[in-house]
Amino acid sequence: MLMLDQVTVRYGDQVALDLQSKIQIADGDIVGIIGRNGAGKSTLIKALTDQVAYTGQIDKPTDIAVHLQENHYPDTVTCQTILEGLLQTTYRRDQKLQALVAFFEFAPLLKRKFQQLSGGQQQRLTIMMVLYQDAALTCFDELSTGLDFETRQQLMSKIKAWYAEKPATILMITHYFDELEALANQLLIIEQGKMLAYGPTTALFQEYVGAAAVIVAAPELDLVLPVGARQIAGESGTTAIGCDSPTTQQAVIALLNQAGVAFTATRLNLTLIYLNVLALHQTVKAG
């Protein structure tokens, strides 16, 4: 189990992270960490891995595997040498490594140097080494940033398939919420170094959005919503409607069908959770 209690990280006068509360992450949880750039997400990983000094308490497993935003290796050696050297093994004799290399379709790239790999291939190299460690806690910090859509999808489906049968605790920082929807069961939202919300994704959806929601592809909606439905914060250019029950959602859908408006119905949407947590936070802040 991972426990963070009142963890604070300062860089000079600047407070980069100030969680002000206790976070407990159970074994096997996959936690998505979201927030704006500079919110303190990476600082949290750095505190966990002792890359920065912090105050407060962190109880963590001894073995932690980390995938950083940027991972560099010497350009003087091949990828196989990097894998063997850092994992302390020999590729020819290591079936686990061979399986990982095959799984990530990396065998043709083993003799290449790191700089000769594309962005997605570079990420795969680090991911293989991170997964190989089978650590009690694994942290992924924006592993798909800068990758094209197809590469990102392939990478995420590989990771999802790899962890399908494994009881792993994972912290995953990303700006791509669809990645978390496929993987995470818990969500931690950080803003300006502070924790705004933490809990199971389904519970947060229930708390901040409703039992269900409908997203209309129009910035404004000239309809009277049924009882139990309310307009909530949504993405720009859309109108989001939170519903207190699936029955209300059905009523909203019927209304929208009648009006001939295009929409999407959802019962779990991390973007809606995030936007409504932020909206509530700003309302509270504004007094």
Partner: peptide, 16 residues
Amino acid sequence: MWAYIRFELKNTLGYP
């Protein structure tokens, strides 16, 4: 540790 030393040896040799 030897695997890592081998890695560093190859790394050093990589600097002509």
